[in-house]
Design a protein around this nucleic acid. Structure first.
Lengths: 353, 353
DNA sequence: GCCGCGCATGGAAACGATTACATCGGTCAT
DNA sequence: ATGACCGATGTAATCGTTTCCATGCGCGGC
């Protein structure tokens, strides 16, 4: 494969000049430039990014570690991230953690080894050594959707609390009183927030949330099935189930069907995260929708800001002027989620139509 | 960030020795080795893969270019690919082509620039300059699922023809006579094969396949909607529609609902590619299932074979002994797909239950 | 007529690893 | 005792770029 030397030789100039042309630095005679460009295309030369990155210490690459590729929410997110990154001249390397801490850390390390310029993470449950180290080492880093308490890393997410309140009101209005929830892993920040909001909203309606109505899931389909099964061994099964992500909702559907029951006749179902398929399930599933694309875009914006602020100027990473630093770390963004009522919780005036 | 020199200094040895320890080459005294290892962990040193790859001319990285991340079939494939690759000590960089030729070529070039060791592609419709060049340049490369005619690149895929025949028989048995199909892009190899098989099977049953029952899609949801809409402006709309991928099937569902019609009462629906959601749509969708995971695994196996055969030995790439080179390029693999009948085509003894 | 300056270009040192080759004791066979 | 050999380690070249500094040249001002 042709190298910069070959190009230089062919154009009759030095490698330095070729490099200047390629990175369009000023101070190259027009005629020389065209000669170089000609040589480049004749040899169909492409710079070796490895060498380039080694020298310049930047890869123009972002790492994205997502919790689960099979979850449509995350693939939509990944897609948005990639789009925005490409628009800004970065490429993205995706690592899929499959909700496993060890796999997540594996990917974080691999990405860091590749010397990515910045890291976007939707961290799995639990304490991640790799992430803690990376944050301490000052790797530009942004959390999306989920986060790790105690780490001073900007966070881009949607606050689902008011939407959860809406949901509970909706369920209450439809006559449901025995509401259950399926959470994510114990330490999952998003899941805990959703649980807290759920509990709070129930209290507002004077409803209890007994422990046996709190199912411990792990954001994956199988756990939705398992928890549903256990719900229906209770003397008094819930009449509505709120799954804190879409895969677990799928699990609920599967198990409900296995048990020979029906949604919403035997039990209502709602999910966090809306996805296209929910429109066409039987019945269509009520869900809380996040502005997924925007999350991706904003996250990349926040990250590239971080990346680019640290290299050119030695400016200290103090908060920028026009940024509302609402609570979290500088650069954090909080969008909002909203309820989309469908038939899976029973009929009402909004869904009957 | 600490470099190999720092480790060497700390351990009181030369960089060569450190390198030898790190790549466990023989001929390092046990005591020296432990001293080096100690230094490594004290400095929490991690080798710079850029430098390493630059020198060794291999990245232990595979590129995967998929047609559409939002398509569950491809994310499942991607996941299988990543798993298998990781098991073999490779990492994977995914590029999402979004069914666009230019985006695909962009990713192919980017991946090549990164000096990946091998490329796995499920090529989009049309003639790809980048892929042609890569193949000619001898980049180790394997096609998965889709392929490009005329390029001598191994192909790992599932042959859906017999499953399509099964499907047509199924539809015929249910009394359908006006069968339509929604294809992918014109030049798409998989779509064409499915179309041909469909046409052939119809002929076996003495059924015609008029042009207006062939809808031109592009493997994306919106095209499924569009084609469905046009089907229902025909004087005689089809009574069954076969979508050649799952996203277009989703589009059909959406449009059928928009038109105020119902599946399967007003029109039957079947799709190529089975996905978990199809079990829970209203109604559950009859689909042709591919062994997706296996496709991913076998593709990686084929690719790493290629990669590893070319470096250590100068062995010519002739076909290996125990390989059935069925028609395609050496290393090709063909698995089979099968029909999963559900209610979207109407009731019969298999689905009524 | 000379100095200094700016412009276009080239030479060569990095970046951080791997690895061929040299070196240096020590052991053993002759 | 000598040299061949071997095992453990070090020296330095190398991969393909970028970039600092030097160089040479033409030109305007004095």
């Amino acid at each position: 494969m042709a190298g910069i030397k070959d190009v230089a030789a062919r154009a009759g100039v030095s490698v330095a000049t070729v490099s200047r042309v390629l990175n369009d630095h000023s101070g190259v005679r027009e005629e020389t430039r065209t000669r170089v460009l000609a040589a480049v295309s004749e040899l169909s030369y492409r710079p070796n990014t490895l060498a380039r990155s080694l020298r310049t210490d930047q890869t123009r690459t972002l790492g994205l570690v997502i919790s689960d590729v099979l979850n449509p929410f995350f693939t939509e997110l990944a897609r948005a991230v990639e789009d925005e990154a490409r628009a800004r001249g970065y490429s993205v390397i995706i690592g899929n953690a499959d909700e496993q801490l060890t796999l997540q850390d594996h990917h974080v390390r691999t990405l860091l080894d590749r010397r990515i310029d910045g890291l976007l993470v939707s961290p799995a449950d639990g304490d991640s050594l790799a992430l803690r180290e990376a944050a301490l080492a000052g790797i530009p880093m942004v959390f999306v959707d989920r986060w790790i308490a105690g780490l001073d890393v900007p966070l881009v997410r949607a606050d689902g609390r008011s939407a959860v309140r809406e949901l509970v009101a909706h369920l209450y209005a439809l006559g449901h009183r025995k509401l259950a929830i399926i959470t994510g892993p114990v330490a999952s920040t998003t899941s805990n927030e959703r649980l807290a909001a759920f509990r709070g909203a129930l209290a507002e309606h004077g409803l209890p949330l007994p422990d046996h109505y709190i199912g411990q899931g792990d954001f994956q389909t199988a756990s939705g099935r398992r928890v549903t099964e256990s719900f229906f061994t209770l003397p008094e099964p819930p009449d509505a189930v709120f799954a804190t992500d879409n895969l677990m909702a799928l699990g609920v559907m599967e198990q409900v069907r296995t048990l020979g029951l029906r949604v919403p006749d035997d039990v209502s179902l709602a999910a966090f995260d809306d996805i296209p398929w929910f429109l066409h399930t039987d019945p269509p599933i009520t869900a809380i929708a996040q502005p997924t694309q925007q999350l991706g875009h904003r996250a990349v914006a926040a990250l590239t800001d971080l990346v680019e602020r640290r290299s050119p100027l030695g400016a200290p990473p103090g908060p920028r002027p026009g940024e509302k630093s609402g609570g979290g770390s500088a650069g954090s963004v909080t969008l909002s989620a909203h309820l989309i009522a469908r038939r899976s919780c029973g009929e009402d005036e909004r869904t009957r139509r």
